[in-house]
């Protein structure tokens, strides 16, 4: 119950903060402008709009997760709002989980809003809303679950600047994990040791590349009923996302448990 109370309060605070509206407006603008870019491209108006729309939604989610999430717990400590909360009969893990759930709810409500606007926009342009686009959006939601957990993990142990640097680095590296394993396979012949290190790195880093099916969705968008990726692959990505998030949140709760304020 306490997790829900903290989550809903975090959501309420976030939606009253003007910064969120600025970011949402920026993402909306990117979706609307995409049509203009589509006009100058040869025969790919719908594809460009779909591609840029999905990119805008993804960028918005990542931006909010990193820039609000990384300061979230530190701000509570710095502004001392935490003192009156932790002295109430709640457990510390409930606080961490509540903050995480509140931010994720904020991101999800905004992503849902932007997705609906994109779908409406595409519908107005006469494009069918295929299952492939829904898959891309669903996996973006899944990716934000992981990115928000990374941000909260660092925020529970570090300052906003350091947390933002660490989270952005991990977010960027997470997009490149597939390349890491490919590169590891190439260098394995030259140096087996480097290959092994790169593989270990690949296992440890968040494999955010798993959630990026935007290009596949754009390619499949024209064909009714076509999937961006097979359902089994999508399920694998979602289970991976949930497991990685659970591990990060558990670590964040453990770090937070014995801290002195």
């Amino acid at each position: 119950m306490s997790v829900l109370i903290i989550a809903l309060n975090t959501f309420r605070e976030a939606v009253r903060d003007k910064i969120l509206y600025v970011l949402t407006l920026f993402a909306l603008l990117l979706i609307l402008v995409s049509r203009g870019v589509g006009w100058v491209s040869y025969g790919g108006e719908l594809k460009i709009t779909t591609d840029m729309g999905l990119l805008a939604i993804w960028l918005f989610g990542a931006f909010v997760a990193i820039f609000i999430g990384t300061g979230m717990i530190y701000k509570e400590i710095d502004k001392r709002t935490l003192y009156t909360i932790l002295s109430k009969p709640i457990d510390r893990w409930q606080f961490v989980l509540g903050k995480y759930a509140g931010l994720l709810l904020t991101i999800y409500v905004n992503l849902a809003l932007l997705s609906l606007i994109l779908f409406g926009y595409l519908w107005l342009m006469g494009a069918p809303i295929g299952i492939a686009i829904l898959q891309a959006v669903a996996l973006t939601f899944c990716e934000m679950m992981v990115v928000t957990a990374i941000a909260i993990f660092f925020s529970s142990a570090s300052t906003p600047v350091l947390s933002a640097i660490f989270t952005t680095t991990l977010f960027a590296m997470g997009q490149l994990t597939k390349w890491m394993v490919d590169l590891g396979a190439i260098v394995r012949n030259a140096s087996p040791w480097v290959g092994k290190v790169m593989y270990a790195f690949y296992l440890l880093m968040p494999n955010l590349h798993n959630f990026n099916v935007r290009q596949e969705a754009v390619n499949a968008a024209g064909t009714a009923g076509a999937l961006a990726i097979p359902a089994s692959q999508m399920l694998n990505a979602m289970v991976y996302g949930a497991a990685y998030t659970a591990a990060l949140l558990l670590a964040a709760m453990l770090l937070f448990r014995r801290r002195n304020f």
Binding site: N9, R12, E13, R16, D17, K79, R80, T81, Y83, T84, S87, K88, P89, I90, D91
Partner: peptide
Amino acid sequence: RGAREKVGFMPENPYFYEY
């Protein structure tokens, strides 16, 4: 946690959520 049910606490210069 039960101890905190019995306590009301006000920190020095308390701060609250701004919004």
